[in-house]
Simulated assay, not measured.
Amino acid sequence: MSDATPSEEKAATTSLGDLLSEVTRDISTLMQQEVELAKAELKQSASKSAKGLGSLGGAAYSGMMAIFFLSLALWWALSTQIGGGWAGVIVAVIWAVIGLVLYRMGRAQMKEVQGAPQTVATLKEIPETLKRNEENR
C-alpha cells in the first residue's frame, strides 16, 4: 500500500460537516476576491474610458469648429458672387441636406439594433429550468 497524502489523511480524520464548512469558507473567500478583482478592473477601465471620452469630446469640438469656419468661408465666397443673403440660404440648405442624410442613416441603423437577444433567451429559460428542478424533487 502506498502512503496516504496529507489531503487523504485530513479527509479520513475530519468530519463531513467540518469539510463542508471549510469548502464553503474557501468558496466564500474566492468569491470575495473575485469581486474585489472585478471592482479594481472596472475602476481601471472606467478611468481609461473617461480619458478616451475626453479626447473624443475635444476632437468633436474641434471638428465642429472646423465645419463652422469652413461654412463661413463658403458663405463669404458665395456672397462675393450672388450676395450675402442668398449665400447664407445656400449654405443652410447644404447643411439641411447633410443633416437629413445623416438622420436617415442613423435611423436605419437604429432599426437594426436587436439589443441582447441571446441574453434575453437565456434569462427566459431560467424559470423553466427552476420549474423542472422543482418537479424532479
Rank of each mutant, 00 (worst) to 15 (best):
K48M: 05
A66E: 07
M65A: 13
G52T: 08
A46D: 11
K43I: 05
F69P: 04
K48E: 13
S55G: 10
F69I: 14
W76V: 02
Y61H: 07
A66T: 12
L78V: 05
G54F: 02
R104V: 10
A87F: 09
L74I: 03
I82H: 03
G57R: 08
G85M: 02
G84S: 06
I90Q: 03
W75V: 11
E41D: 07
A92P: 08
G88N: 04
Y103D: 12
A59Y: 01
G88T: 02
G88W: 01
G84R: 01
I98S: 02
M64D: 05
K43N: 10
A73Y: 03
G54Y: 04
A66D: 12
A60W: 05
L72P: 08
A92E: 08
L78C: 05
V89C: 01
I82L: 12
G54I: 02
S49C: 09
T80P: 06
G63F: 07
W86H: 00
S62T: 14
Q81W: 10
G83Y: 04
L70M: 13
L42E: 01
G54C: 04
S45C: 03
G52P: 01
K51P: 03
A92V: 12
L70V: 10
L53Q: 06
S71P: 00
I67E: 15
G85S: 12
A108K: 04
S71D: 08
Y103P: 05
F69R: 04
A50D: 13
M65D: 08
I90R: 03
L42R: 11
V91F: 04
S55V: 07
